[in-house]
Design a binder for these strands. Structure first.
Length: 671
DNA sequence: ACGCTAACCTATTCACAAG
DNA sequence: CTTGTGAATAGGTTAGCGT
């Protein structure tokens, strides 16, 4: 929106006179001359009272709308362009660079600094890994699409024409890409199943039918290196990401970017978000181990031949798998995770990478400069490094997910993660933590002082893990949450759900999954229903509340699909009913975003589906589910199939919730 | 070891523009 | 009126420096 309102005085007054529409250079010179003097060290306040500024002030005042107290000036398009260029060149300009920029624009240093800050933040948000909820949301969205795609044909009389998109609930519309729309015909039972399986995993959609080319392409994924953005994208998608990218065109850009993030490191790292995961992730196909993994998996999977096979055995929890298998899983996955060369020393800052990928900018530039930076300020670099380092973690994580949770795996993950994090990069840790900071805030902290606890390695996951008693109290201890997981796996005790939620990283990110109840008391989003407590492999699935909440929201026409999907859905979908502020979407959770009740815990509720029977039971229980899922009710085995077939047609009303609920159900079913 | 400072970051709030 | 986005602010953290 560069449509900044150039105030009437438009042609950037200050310069305009001097340099109306000139190129930056020109502008630069002139400005530099004029501005440098004036603006350079203008007090921050200056902008407000730009008037005072000497010569230009008058002009400036014209250009930049002065914003008295409350009014804010918008950077002019021109300035913005300059800033963008500068940003692309170097997202974190040092003082000199900033100064230079200042000279070129009509902003003072402070403003420039802020601009960059905000820009980075913005960038970060975009590239930020999706939270589980978000992913879930997306996933569901994808599901819808898929289902719709698939299903429609089946159910609708017009198999071919029906554009999936149409079918797609409003929610997804934005997301639905042509691709997704894919072939209506493709659904066959297998497919359906398959879709189901990886649902979002389109890549895995092998489909008997040829059409799914995209998928084929996708399948070829496990490339460690992605030279092109496209590849990255693809990669990202190994699973979810891919899916997302496919599903989310518009927003997607941003979503997909997130996923790409890691890609650039050449490492197929699982999106961090996975790590954070709550179970929602588990449902996801292992991102990194796409094909191979899928093959290995005992659940619905794509055959090597690319055919979707439904493995009746519900996706198991790691627990169900013998260690050996887990191992194999793990190993299987690893290949895809191979560390790229870049992994080691992380040199490339993600953002820069991203930026580099961006068309406009001068790609090359960004990277080097950063390296030069003396301070390790370049968070990105470090983060990235961390990511890279974490690849292993990711792998592990992945493995974990794959395995669905062996205690061992989980533990190892947590530990490794922790250690790596701690040792390697505080940044990352901090980052992840910070990301969730809002959440954390929301969550009552036991320890806490008002201040945020320092993010130190020991404190996080590790600490928790080591904290003994965490395991049991299901309720109060959200913090132990992480720690619990492992235990859960091993024990299969109530916290089972927790296992689901475990964040591989084991750090604060887990908090994301925490959601304070209305009272502010900590609780797991998914409260294990009494049944939950049962020792079994049952896993909680999002459902009822979810759907309900979603439903409500979804119905709100006003909400943009994106929002729905991500924000609103997320909460609902999210295992944790509450999405914390940090929504990716909002990225940072702008306060405004909260409005919608994002904060509200939608979760609060009650819906928890447990793996096995859940489908059956839960469905019944959940209003939404019941509504939508009727078809499933009779037998569990086909549920998925049926679902995919569209019996549950996600009618537009299709409300995400419905779909979501179904999905979750189905998922639960698998598992 | 401390205190400072500068730079960053995240989360939020505010304003504004657009639908 | 709602939503999305950009500009600003507040509170924190970290690293480099000087004492």
């Amino acid at each position: 929106m560069d449509t900044l309102a150039p105030t009437p005085s438009t042609p950037s007054p200050q310069l305009s006179s001097a340099v109306p529409g000139l190129a930056h250079e020109v502008e630069h010179e002139e400005l530099s001359q004029s501005t440098s003097q004036n603006q350079v060290f203008e007090s921050p306040l200056l902008r407000e009272s730009q008037t005072p500024a000497p010569q230009l002030s008058s002009q400036l005042s014209g250009e930049v709308e002065r914003h008295p107290k409350g009014k804010r000036k918008r950077t002019t398009a021109k300035d913005k362009a300059i800033l963008e260029a500068a940003y692309n060149a170097n997202p974190k300009p040092d003082k000199a660079a900033r100064q230079d920029i200042v000279n070129r624009v009509s902003l003072n240093e402070k403003e420039v600094q802020i601009w960059f800050q905000n820009r980075r933040q913005n960038d970060r948000r975009k590239s930020r890994p999706l939270s589980p909820q978000e992913i879930a949301a997306l996933r569901y969205g994808g599901m819808q699409i898929l289902s719709s795609d698939n299903t429609l044909p089946v159910y609708t009389s017009e198999p071919e024409n029906t554009s999936p998109i149409q079918v797609v609930s409003s929610l997804d519309q934005e997301y639905s890409s042509p691709r997704e729309v894919a072939s209506p015909s493709k659904l066959d039972d297998h497919e359906t199943e398959q879709n189901h399986e990886d649902t979002l995993h389109e890549d895995t959609l092998p489909l008997p039918e040829p059409q799914s080319q995209p998928q084929e392409e996708q399948q070829s994924l496990p490339h460690p290196v992605y030279a092109t953005p496209a590849q990255k994208q693809r990669h990202a998608g190994d699973d979810d990401s891919l899916l997302m990218s496919q599903h989310l065109p518009s927003s997607v850009g941003y979503l997909s970017n997130r996923w790409n993030y890691p890609a650039h490191s050449h490492v197929l790292s699982t999106p961090i978000s996975f790590d954070r995961g709550d179970d929602s992730f588990n449902n996801f196909p292992p991102s990194s181990c796409s094909s191979s993994t899928s093959a290995l998996r005992p659940r619905l999977s794509t055959g090597l031949d690319g055919k979707a096979e439904v493995i009746t055995s519900p996706p198991q929890n790691p627990a169900s798998l013998p260690p050996s298998e887990l191992q194999s899983f793990d190993s299987a996955c690893r290949p895809s995770y191979q560390r790229g060369p870049s992994e080691s020393p992380v040199t490339l800052p993600p953002i820069s990478t991203i930026t580099s990928s961006l068309p406009s900018s001068q790609n090359a530039a960004p990277l080097l400069p950063r390296l030069a930076r003396g301070r390790s300020r370049d968070v990105h670099a470090w983060e990235f490094a961390c990511d890279a380092e974490n690849c292993e973690d990711a792998l592990t994580v992945q493995a974990k997910h794959e395995s669905r949770g062996s205690a061992i795996a989980a533990i190892s993950l947590l530990r490794s993660t922790t250690s790596s994090t701690a040792g390697g990069s505080p940044l990352q840790l901090s980052r992840s933590n910070k990301r969730n900071a809002s959440i954390s805030r929301m969550t009552p902290r036991a320890d806490s002082s008002t201040k945020k606890p320092r993010l130190t390695k020991g404190l996080d996951a590790t600490g928790r893990l080591e904290t003994p008693n965490n395991n049991n109290t299901w309720a109060g201890k959200r913090q132990s949450f992480t720690a619990d997981t492992p235990a859960d796996f091993s024990h299969n005790t109530k916290p089972k759900s927790s296992s689901l939620f475990i964040s591989p990283q084991g750090n604060e990110s887990d908090k994301e999954n925490w959601s304070p109840d209305e009272n502010g008391n900590p609780r797991f989003s998914y409260h294990p229903p009494s049944s939950a407590i049962r020792p079994t492999n049952r896993r909680l699935l999002p459902s009822g509340p979810l759907s309900s909440s979603i439903h409500d929201k979804a119905t709100n026409p006003r909400r943009t699909p994106a929002r729905h999907a991500l924000i609103e859905s997320s909460p609902s979908f999210s295992l944790s009913g509450n999405r914390t502020n940090t929504g990716p979407l909002d990225g940072g959770g702008r306060g405004q975003h909260y409005r919608g009740g994002d904060k509200r815990g939608g979760g609060g509720s009650e819906l928890r589906i447990y793996e096995d029977f859940v489908v059956a039971t839960t469905e019944h229980n959940t209003p939404t589910a019941s509504r939508r899922a009727p078809p499933f009710e009779d037998d569990g085995s086909d549920e998925v199939e049926r679902f995919m077939r569209g019996e549950i047609s996600p009618s537009k009303k299709g409300d995400a919730d419905a779909v979501a609920g179904l999905l979750s159900l189905s998922q639960g079913n698998w598992r």
